[in-house]
């Protein structure tokens, strides 16, 4: 039953992890937020998404876990056309994408362990498996030993790392981060970015929206630049 590895790799490389094809997004109240955006990210690629405030970074990111659907064009995630996804398929699409937010979006009344475990509980993993994976994930972000703490007792940098641990605990093929260092000082930001690089090195596709130019220039990765809804560099 084992497929030859080479064939497997070839078949997968044909399909980009993420593909935007002439995507436009229009809100009735605001007008066009994205205009004919086209690009693709290969499996295991890391890229920054940048641009001025209101350039459409967040909107672009929202299209990937189908928080919004684009008005024109198409978005393909691992070959699946997201425009055609039915509502009941959306949860399963979201499980393929680890989301990281500027405000961390942690549950304040739950421990670090419970926060990180949430995606696994949702995916229906058994108790032992959850425990093992949460520990592995917290170890990865350097928070092992803080499972029983509550988010409020942690610093901003630590809270964001809990958010990252939650995003990767289910081992999704892709990570999306929306201004993940927006609330952190430069030193912590560099640490967080370094973490993302580590995930990329194990083959995860990473897309980070940020306007922290100094950080981007320090790191040698692809940069997608949005200006008034149009992609002006990729």
């Amino acid at each position: 039953m084992q497929r030859p590895l080479l064939m497997h790799c070839l078949s997968k490389t044909k399909i980009a992890m993420l593909k935007f094809d002439n995507v436009s997004m229009r809100y009735p109240e605001v007008g066009d937020v994205l205009r004919n955006v086209s690009f693709h990210l290969q499996h295991g690629e890391m890229a920054f998404l940048t641009g001025h405030s209101g350039a459409g970074k967040s909107t672009l990111l929202k299209l990937i876990p189908v928080i919004e659907r684009c008005s024109r064009g198409q978005v393909l995630l691992d070959g699946q056309n997201l425009n055609k996804a039915r509502n009941r398929q959306i949860p399963y699409i979201r499980r393929k994408v680890g989301l990281i937010f500027q405000d961390y979006k942690l549950l304040q009344d739950r421990t670090v362990f419970d926060n990180v475990a949430l995606p696994l509980v949702i995916a229906g993993y058994g108790h032992n498996e959850i425990s093992r994976r949460v520990r592995a994930s917290l170890d990865k972000v350097g928070l092992l030993g803080k499972e029983k703490k509550y988010p409020v007792t942690l610093s901003g940098g630590e809270q964001q790392r809990v958010g990252i641990a939650r995003a990767v605990v289910n081992k999704p093929p892709m990570i999306l981060a929306d201004e993940p260092t927006g609330n952190l000082d430069p030193e912590l930001s560099a640490e967080i970015m370094h973490l993302f690089e580590q995930f990329q090195q194990v083959g995860v596709t990473v897309l980070i929206a940020t306007h922290d130019i100094s950080l981007i220039t320090q790191m040698n990765h692809r940069v997608l630049k949005l200006d008034h809804g149009q992609l002006i560099a990729s």
Binding site: H8, H43, G44, P173, Q201, V202, G203
Partner: peptide, 15 residues
């Protein structure tokens, strides 16, 4: 890309 793909497969098999 192929190299990354193999890593990705390793990451995924554990899922």
């Amino acid at each position: 890309i192929n190299k990354n793909q193999i890593k990705q497969d390793r990451w995924q098999t554990r899922t």
